[in-house]
């Protein structure tokens, strides 16, 4: 579906990452974890094809659905932003037709963002814009969905909403999902696998339970962390990660 083999990107002499293997099938969800400046965004852009690899190969569908961290608060209607996902299939002189709008509306409905349909993007909050971007990504109908720190600008309620949406999408099994995050608990909640960017040439990848061990995470972030299960009434056991300050 989508794969990087021996992938590397460098800036000048410095390798951001190198020798990275990644493959992703529909219904699978991979979380990319790493501290600031370790190349999460660069990796995301490499997967989408926005950044060219300096080394290695990339196999991908012609279009990868991409949710950037932010979008400029332009004065366009949310529906008109979502329908831009159809631009590629519409051709150079095409403008969206009813069928394209139906796809856009369905994408907004799928993530429960119908309420924003007629709202202008610059009148929405950062979290609401994020959802519009996610809807736009779905409206591309690409089987690969890539999100760059989708939760970074969201408050707790909107984070829960995003986590729920990603879980639904994973359960539906149509998309191969890759997202980067600063919140390891999101990886535990949503992802099947985690990719830890330990260093430019050291990536650890595997099922979240195995690879997100206390020792790996503590080494990754350079700060001691503990993983605990907490019994919460009505929710059963909830996995969490606690930094020890």
């Amino acid at each position: 579906m989508i794969a990087l083999k021996g992938a590397g990107i460098r800036r000048g002499e410095r390798w951001i990452f190198r020798g990275l293997d990644l493959s992703l099938a529909p219904g699978r969800c991979v979380a990319v974890l790493g501290p600031n400046g370790r190349g999460k965004t660069t990796l995301i852009k490499a997967v989408t094809g926005l950044d060219k690899l300096d080394e290695g190969t990339r196999t991908a569908p012609p279009l990868v659905a991409y949710v950037p961290q932010v979008i400029a608060p332009l004065p366009y209607r949310a529906l008109d932003v979502v329908v831009m996902a159809r631009a590629r299939s519409l051709g150079l002189f095409g403008t969206p037709r009813r069928a394209d709008y139906d796809i856009a509306r369905a994408a907004l409905a799928r993530i429960g963002a119908e309420a924003f349909t007629e709202q202008r993007l610059d009148r929405l909050s950062g979290g609401e814009r994020q959802l519009v971007l996610l809807a736009r990504a779905l409206a591309t109908q690409s089987p690969v969905l890539v999100l760059d720190e989708p939760a970074s600008a969201l408050d707790l309620a909107n984070q829960s909403r995003l986590v729920a949406v990603l879980r639904d999408l994973r359960a539906a099994g149509e998309h191969a999902i890759l997202f980067s995050t600063h919140l390891p608990t999101h990886a535990l909640e949503v992802a099947d696998e985690a990719l830890l960017l330990m260093g430019p040439e050291d990536q650890r990848q595997g099922p979240v339970d195995a690879v997100m061990s206390e020792s790996n995470l503590s080494a990754l972030y350079g700060t001691p962390l503990r993983r605990r299960q907490v019994a919460i009434e009505g929710h059963g056991l909830v996995e969490t990660i606690i930094p020890l300050h």
């Binding site: 926005l50 400029a72 831009m84 403008t95 591309t140």
Partner: peptide, 20 residues
Amino acid sequence: GLRFRINVLSLGEDDARALG
């Protein structure tokens, strides 16, 4: 003819490229 393309281009380089 390009008026819808111009909408997408007005999002910025990365966004328009990401939309293919």
